[in-house]
C-alpha cells in the first residue's frame, strides 16, 4: 500500500498522466464530434498514424512546429472527407469504410515515410515542442509541476475540451450537430442540410484525431516509428461511450486512462521483479473494460448513429 501511496503523491505521476492522456483527449473529442453527428469513424486509428507522420514529416522538411500541427490536421481532415464521402454521401457501411480508412491511412503513411527516407535505419529526429511554464501557476507546490508544466499541445487539448463543450451546448451549430445525430429528419424539416452538417462534423473530428497522432511525434517523442500509435485510436472509440458523448466526461475518461497507464509504469518499476511485466501493460486496458461495463450499459447513444440518411426516402 505504501508503494501505491508513494506513486499517487508524486507530482511527476500526475504530470505523466496528463501527458499520456493528451493524444487521447484529441482523439476522443474528434470521435465525439463525428458520433454526435451520427457517424462512427473507425478510421481513427489510421488517422492517428497519418497525423503523426504528416506533422513530423512537415517539421523534418523545414516547417515550423505549428505549421506541422496544421498540416497534420489537414491530412486528418482529408481522410475524414473520404470517410464522409463514403458514409454520408454514398450511405455505405460506416464500419467497413472506417476500417478501410484505418488500413489505407496507416499504409499510406508508412509508404510515404519509407519513400521519402529510403535508407534510414535509426529514425531521424526533430526538435519537438518543449514544456512551457505558466508564470505563477507553475510555481504552486505540487499542483504546479503536476498540471502546469506541459507542452503547448497539451494546453491546446484542454482548451479544445472547453471550446467543444461551448460549441455543442451554447451555439446553434452545436444544437444542429446534436439534432442531426439524434434524428436527421428534425434537421431537414427545419431547412438545414443533413449532409452538410455530417460531412463538416466528420472532417473536423478527423482533423482533431490527427492532432492526437501529431502529439506523439512532435511533443511526446521527436521521431516517427512504425506501430507507435499502438491502439490509442481504438481506446478513444471506447472512451466516447464511457463519456456518454459529453466533452467533460471525455476529458475525465482520457485522464483516467492516462493515470492507469502512468501508474502501471511506476508500479512496474517498484514491484516488477515479483509480477510479470505483461500484467502491468494489461492493466489500463483491463480497467477501461471494467469502467465501460459499469458505465456503458446506461449509455445514451445518439439515436441516429450508424444510420445513413437518404433525402426523399420513406423512413
Amino acid at each position: 500500500m505504501d508503494v501505491v501511496f508513494d506513486i499517487l503523491s508524486s507530482a511527476n505521476f500526475w504530470a505523466a498522466a496528463i501527458r499520456i492522456a493528451t493524444p487521447l483527449i484529441f482523439g476522443v473529442l474528434g470521435a465525439l464530434i463525428c458520433e454526435r453527428a451520427g457517424v462512427l469513424n473507425l478510421g481513427i486509428e489510421g488517422i492517428f498514424v497519418a497525423g503523426a507522420m504528416a506533422g513530423w514529416m512537415a517539421v523534418f522538411l523545414g516547417a515550423g512546429l505549428w505549421g506541422g500541427v496544421l498540416i497534420a490536421a489537414v491530412a486528418g481532415g482529408l481522410f475524414g472527407l473520404l470517410h464522409a464521402f463514403l458514409t454520408v454521401i454514398l450511405g455505405l457501411s460506416q464500419h467497413v469504410s472506417g476500417i478501410g480508412i484505418t488500413l489505407l491511412a496507416t499504409s499510406a503513411s508508412y509508404f510515404t515515410y519509407r519513400t521519402a527516407l529510403p535508407n534510414v535505419t535509426t529514425p531521424p529526429r526533430i526538435v519537438p515542442f518543449q514544456p512551457v511554464s505558466i508564470p505563477g501557476l507553475s510555481d504552486i507546490p505540487f499542483v504546479g509541476p503536476a498540471l502546469f508544466q506541459q507542452t503547448p499541445m497539451t494546453f491546446l487539448a484542454l482548451l479544445l475540451v472547453g471550446a467543444l463543450a461551448l460549441v455543442l451546448y451554447r451555439t446553434p451549430l452545436g444544437l444542429a450537430i446534436r439534432a442531426v445525430g439524434d434524428n436527421p429528419a428534425s434537421v431537414e424539416a427545419q431547412g438545414l442540410s443533413v449532409t452538410g452538417l455530417r460531412v463538416g462534423a466528420v472532417v473536423l473530428g478527423s482533423a482533431l484525431m490527427a492532432l492526437g497522432g501529431a502529439f506523439l511525434t512532435m511533443s511526446a517523442f521527436d521521431a516517427f516509428f512504425f506501430g507507435m500509435v499502438n491502439g490509442r485510436g481504438w481506446i478513444c472509440i471506447a472512451l466516447v461511450v464511457f463519456a456518454s458523448w459529453q466533452p467533460g466526461k471525455a476529458l475525465l475518461g482520457a485522464l483516467l486512462f492516462g493515470a492507469f497507464d502512468a501508474f502501471q509504469i511506476r508500479l512496474q518499476a517498484q514491484i516488477g521483479q515479483v509480477v510479470p511485466g505483461q500484467v502491468f501493460l494489461m492493466m489500463p486496458y483491463l480497467l477501461s473494460i471494467v469502467a465501460l461495463i459499469l458505465v456503458a450499459r446506461r449509455a445514451d447513444y445518439p439515436r441516429a448513429l450508424l444510420q445513413p440518411w437518404t433525402k426523399g426516402q420513406r423512413h
Binding site: 451555439t171 446553434p172 451549430l173 429528419a185 428534425s186 424539416a189 427545419q190 445518439p302
Partner: peptide
C-alpha cells in the same frame, strides 16, 4: 405524422433549430 423532433434536445431547442446563424451564440 411521424414527428421530426430531436428527442435529446429541449422543446425550445427544437423550435430554434435552423432559425439562427450556425456560427453565433444564438
Amino acid at each position: 405524422q411521424h414527428f421530426t423532433l430531436a428527442e435529446n434536445l429541449s422543446g425550445l431547442a427544437n423550435i430554434r433549430l435552423g432559425t439562427e446563424p450556425l456560427v453565433s451564440f444564438g
